[in-house]
Design a binder for these strands. Structure first.
Length: 716
DNA sequence: GCATCGGATTTTTTT
DNA sequence: AATCCGATGC
């Protein structure tokens, strides 16, 4: 147990605490991953707990893999018996095993966001609801919220007309999922909870099996997850949770950091251990980070400290726009690397929204420097990848309606909206999923002659017959071979390769997917489909390569880098404009910035552009309020409070009177711009005290300008 | 049934 | 800017 010697007293206290409920409040960089890992090792090595009786829940699959490897390194191969995984993956395993008690069967497929949206749109159509009035996205979010609170459609009591509609949609949506043998992300948790609540035998089996439960990132669990932990731990009460309320950044997906308080209430005998010493960052970085979250009130206000010393000041840089910002990032990295002061892999560039990655990518490409982008979306979100996966899912489970609808006419095979509507109707009458009906049709086409026009029947059979073959084939061949067969059958390669470069790229992606599938020869199709659906963004990150990494602040959680850039520090982006009128969301933006800052070991670089791109237009941007709150003495460069004149002239204040100000420019005015020449004013409006003028220039087309900044001159 | 065009709409973060 | 949607014409 040499590893115990490497821990500080608080860490050791946590690792060696006697069984029972334990709450570890761990600041960033305080070694919580080590504590969790060693705790498992200690349970096995010192207390003789059998790995089979341990459940460890992590936030990403990558974290799960790492933890497993580290436990194995500490206590040996027997550690493989520990159940380690994300909530979602663990629940999926339980549901497959216990499917007998549930309204779907064990080979269910997990519906991703895309499937969910598709289904909701279908449901709206079926219920004759206008998707303009009831935005599918909003409904989806509302349904997800209900699920995260543990509410099934039948338990939802609507209290307004809107909620009544919501209930209707939720009900229909849930039925669709079930008839397609699908389970969405939230369902994985919800059905597992339902199972544990309603089938005592199952609850007891798992509660007795998991003598010890450990949960990482506890501040980002939602209510259902909390209940799951509580029920699974109900027999032994050995629940070890680690979290940091200041790093709670997922409330929009139902996470509730108050689970930390709830835990203290539900387990009044819980031992609470504080880890405050930071082993990651310099004191300057910690001081800046604490300043950012100082306005938040909390019960346990932490004082982060390190023995590493002050270190470098935080570099703040003001830049004209996002392109210059990206150039600054790339040049700074290149010059530090050239001078031998850092390795390319020492750098991470973080941003608030994914859209910001593009300009950065372009800058790296232009400079000819390699980079890595963290984000599953990048690959698994591609149309061609989704198509190929939909085919595989369909072969695995023909009842999968979203997958069927996705590919039934891709490549085009004469099955249009009319035919699909007829197929749907026929399926509903027969009480079958459309895909199942197609299987029947392939076997006995004559049964359907009366229902479909000859033309429709022929088109449908053109799909139904191969589908029936794939369904057979799926049982006997590997996922990779199945994929190859299907794609060859439908001529997918020819469909993609249309002579354009984009087509080439798409086909490359399909081949990449095929390569991934070939890793699942042993585990089979079901495992492959599950893996590709549950990948998290971080899971796509491979450690080996020595290149800078681009990622969102959310994806940065749990990671650390010597040098961290956070870009786009302007009002509207960080904090995001969606948080402007909501105190809770604003607090979360603050924590998000805090998470970003505390990822850095040695040096932080913050940048803010004067102009922000929005929907293709440049708009003037104000420095983020968070930037101003960092004590200037911790920084070098362009701290907004350093008295650097912001815009030319007096600083632009959104005065109340300005709201009623009349625009100086009007549609029809002719104007001249020093750079773009003559143009015609299309319109002008006052927004936040600034006059925004839309001008159509002969030279460059339509531009939106701030009248106070652009030197626009009226001409007659 | 399908391709094309123009207009509207969009972006927060992700399992 | 990029994508999605619906209307139009073939």
């Amino acid at each position: 147990m040499d590893y115990l010697l490497t821990l500080n007293p608080q860490q050791r206290e946590a690792v060696t605490a006697p069984p029972g409920p334990i709450l570890v409040l761990a600041g960033p960089g305080s070694g919580k991953t080590r504590v969790l890992t060693y705790r498992v090792a200690y349970l096995i090595g010192a207390l003789g707990v059998r790995p089979f009786h341990i459940l460890a829940v992590t936030f990403t699959n990558k974290a799960a893999r790492e933890m497993e490897n580290r436990i194995i390194a500490t206590v040996g191969a027997q550690a493989r018996g520990v159940t380690i995984g994300t909530f979602h993956a663990t629940c999926a395993r339980i549901l497959r095993r216990e499917a007998d008690h549930l309204p779907f069967d064990a080979n269910f497929v997990i519906a991703d966001t895309d499937d969910q949206r598709r289904l909701i749109k279908n449901v709206l159509q079926e219920l004759n609801l206008d998707p303009k009035q009831y935005a599918p996205q909003k409904l989806h979010a509302a349904i997800s919220r209900l699920k995260n609170e543990g509410i099934f459609p039948e338990n939802f009591e609507p209290s307004s007309y809107g909620e009544k509609v919501l209930k209707q949609v939720y009900e229909a949506y849930q039925n669709r999922l079930l008839s397609s043998n699908l389970v969405d992300f939230d369902d994985l948790l919800l059905w597992t909870l339902h199972l544990l609540q309603t089938v005592p035998a199952v609850r007891q089996r798992y509660a007795r099996r998991f003598q010890h439960i450990l949960v990482d990132e506890f501040q980002d669990t939602n209510l259902v997850q909390y209940e799951l932990v509580r029920l699974l731990g109900s027999h032994y009460r050995n629940i070890f949770v680690v979290g940091d309320a200041d790093q709670s950044i997922y409330s929009w997906r139902g996470a509730d950091y108050r689970n930390v308080l709830r835990f203290e209430q539900d387990f009044p005998d819980a031992k609470v251990i504080l880890l405050e010493q930071n082993y990651r960052s310099t004191q300057t970085i910690l001081d800046a980070a604490m300043a950012v979250i100082a306005p938040l009130q909390g019960k346990h206000r932490k004082q982060l400290f390190t023995s590493r010393g002050a270190g470098q000041k935080i570099a703040i840089r003001r830049v004209p726009d996002d392109r210059e910002e990206a150039r600054y990032v790339v040049e700074t990295i290149a010059s530090l690397v050239a001078r031998g002061q850092a390795q390319p892999g020492d750098f991470a560039i973080m941003y608030r929204i994914n859209a910001q990655s593009r300009v950065l990518e372009e800058a790296f490409l232009r400079a000819g420097l390699p980079y890595r982008l963290v984000g599953a979306q990048r690959f698994y979100g591609r149309r061609e990848v989704k198509d190929a996966l939909a085919y595989l899912r369909l072969a695995h489970n023909p009842a999968d309606e979203p997958s069927l609808m996705r590919v039934i006419n891709v490549p085009p095979r004469g099955i249009g909206t009319k035919t699909i509507a007829a197929l749907r109707t026929a399926a509903r009458r027969a009480g079958l999923a459309p895909g199942t009906l197609l299987l029947h049709m392939a076997a006995a086409p004559e049964d359907y002659q009366n229902f479909f026009s000859p033309r429709a029947l022929k088109a449908l059979l053109g799909f139904a017959r191969p589908l029936a073959q794939w369904y057979e084939l799926a049982l006997s061949v590997s996922p990779a071979d199945l994929m190859a067969t299907i794609l060859a059958d439908v001529g997918y390669k020819e469909y993609l390769l249309d002579g354009t470069e984009e087509g080439e790229e798409r086909w490359e992606n399909v081949r990449e997917l095929h390569r991934l599938a070939s890793r699942y020869n042993e585990e089979g199709l079901s495992a492959f489909l599950e893996e590709v659906t549950l990948v998290s963004d971080q899971d796509t990150l491979e450690d080996a390569e020595n290149t800078p990494i681009l990622l969102t602040l959310h994806a940065a959680k749990g990671l650390e880098f010597p040098h961290v850039f956070i870009v786009g520090l302007v009002e509207g982006l960080l904090p995001h404009s969606r948080a402007w009128d909501n105190e809770d969301e604003m607090a979360e933006e603050r924590r998000l910035f805090y998470v970003g800052l505390t990822r850095a070991k040695d040096q932080v670089y913050l940048t803010y552009p004067e102009m922000r791109m929005l929907y293709g237009y440049a708009e003037p941007a104000e420095p983020s309020r968070f930037l101003e709150e960092i004590p200037p003495e911790l920084t070098t460069g362009d701290h907004p409070a350093r008295g650097t004149t912001y815009w030319q002239g007096p600083r632009w204040e959104p005065a109340p009177a300005a709201e009623t100000r009349e625009p100086e420019f009007h549609a029809g005015d002719k104007v001249r711009h020093p750079r773009w020449g003559e143009g015609l004013v299309i319109g002008s409006r006052i927004k936040d005290g600034a006059e925004l003028v839309d001008v159509a220039f002969e030279s460059v087309g339509l531009k939106r300008l701030d009248a106070a900044l652009a030197r626009l001159e009226k001409i007659t």
